[in-house]
Amino acid sequence: MRIIPTRAWAATALFTAFAILPFLADALDDSYLVVIATRIIAYAIAALALDLILGYGGLVSFGHAAYLGIGAYSVAILSRAGITDLGLHLAAAIAGAAIFATITGAISLRTKGIYFIMITLAFAQMGYFFFVSLSAYGGDDGVTLAQRSTLFGQPVLESDRALYYTAFALLLGLYLLAVAITRSRFGRVLTGTRENPVRMRAIGFSPFRYQLTAFVISGCMAAVAGVMLANQTNYVSPAFMDWHRSGELVVMVVFGGVGNLLGAVAGATVALLLEEWLSILTEHWPLLFGVILVMVVLYSRDGLSGLFRRRT
């Protein structure tokens, strides 16, 4: 809890940077920047969702890409049915994610440690192969979206900047929601269970219900990221749910620093920016990224947030 004043300050700085970024893009005459930033924000939402259960609950889900996929396919499926409203897309994504998370979470949470990691991975892969075999939506190849989600019947989000600010508003809202959750009674039970589940039972808590609720909340948040990602790429395919993608989310959280929420946002931001820049330098950029990741984790157990904290 000692990092909160620093975190509030760092959060203000980071979110302010996000807020003024489109103006910076204007000044630089680089409209691609807004496109990258939208992608970054979508992943930041997913990483934030993952950190809620990974950092606070000690639940390492290696299948969170499934929720990106559920969110993305909600857009694809509803759009084809002629339903284009963003609100409905989000509602469908959240409902779908809640169902998937409740079922898979109830089963996964019976296991611990490496088994939990493997079983969440297995469920995500089932989702992956389900959509691979869904030929109506392009199977392996996926499906191109005819248009972005609409807002109040208007094609407002066709503007990159409007899409960006919508994603940004969602990130900001979900970040504040996640911060509130972690400080609440519920958050204390979740964190306490990570600290010592036997102790929690010995004072009268049954951890399962709290862990499952957190798992569902996290899944729903990640599905929101999927909706944004689909809109950003105008294209939905099973690749969204690939297990590599789940791994990338874990990397972003660890890179940014586990268990303080803002670290996940920063981790997603820096990881994707590095990906953009390093891939200009060399096609072997994952190697360079790997070196940087190892250095950060090696020199600061708390990832980027740890580096930041040490300096302040």
Partner: peptide, 8 residues
Amino acid sequence: SFRFFSPV
């Protein structure tokens, strides 16, 4: 303990 918003 299913209270999510007020700081404990």
